[in-house]
Measured scan of single mutants.
Amino acid sequence: VFVDDHLLEKVLELNAKGEKRLIKTWSRRSTIVPEMVGHTIAVYNGKQHVPVYITENMVGHKLGEFAP
């Protein structure tokens, strides 16, 4: 499973602090992992960042699938 390192670091850091804030990313190719559930990730679609709230059903899919 591929997840960009910088994105995973941000998610794990927020989980350690117990925070839930918006994470901006250009990494549409990253796979959604269970650690991301409950976070809102702003995924770049080529024009703007689209906020995507991550749920359990999204695990295993790519971030780009949810930012048309």
Rank of each mutant, 00 (worst) to 15 (best):
P68T: 11
M58E: 06
D4A: 03
S30H: 02
L8S: 03
I54Q: 00
K17D: 05
N57Y: 11
V3M: 02
Y44C: 14
K24D: 03
Y53V: 10
T25Y: 02
R28K: 09
H61P: 00
K10S: 14
K10M: 15
V50R: 07
G60S: 10
V11G: 00
K20P: 02
G64T: 04
E35D: 09
I23S: 02
E19K: 08
E56F: 12
H49V: 03
A16S: 11
V50Q: 14
E19H: 07
R28V: 05
H39Y: 05
G18S: 09
Y53E: 12
D5G: 15
K62D: 03
V52Q: 04
F2I: 08
K20G: 03
K47I: 11
F66E: 04
P34D: 11
V50E: 14
E19L: 10
T40R: 08
P51F: 05
H49C: 07
T55S: 12
E13V: 05
G46S: 11
H39E: 01
V1S: 15
A67H: 04
V37A: 09
H61E: 10
L7R: 00
E65G: 09
E9N: 15
E35W: 03
V3E: 06
G38M: 07
L12V: 09
V43M: 03
A16E: 12
Y44G: 04
D4G: 01
M36H: 02
N15T: 04
K47Y: 11
K62M: 11
K17E: 08
T40K: 09
M36T: 01
S30K: 01
L12G: 04
D5Y: 15
L63G: 00
G46K: 09
H39I: 03
N57A: 13
K17S: 10
A16I: 09
E13N: 08
E19G: 05
T31F: 10
T55V: 12
V3L: 04
H39R: 02
V50S: 09
L63E: 00
T25R: 02
M36P: 00
N45P: 02
A16C: 13
H49Y: 15
V11I: 14
A42R: 03
K47F: 12
T31W: 08
A42P: 01
E35Y: 06
T25C: 03
N45A: 08
F2E: 11
V3R: 01
M58A: 08
H6P: 04
I23R: 01
V11R: 00
T25Q: 02
P34V: 13
P68H: 07
M58F: 06
Y53L: 13
P68M: 08
K24W: 14
L7P: 01
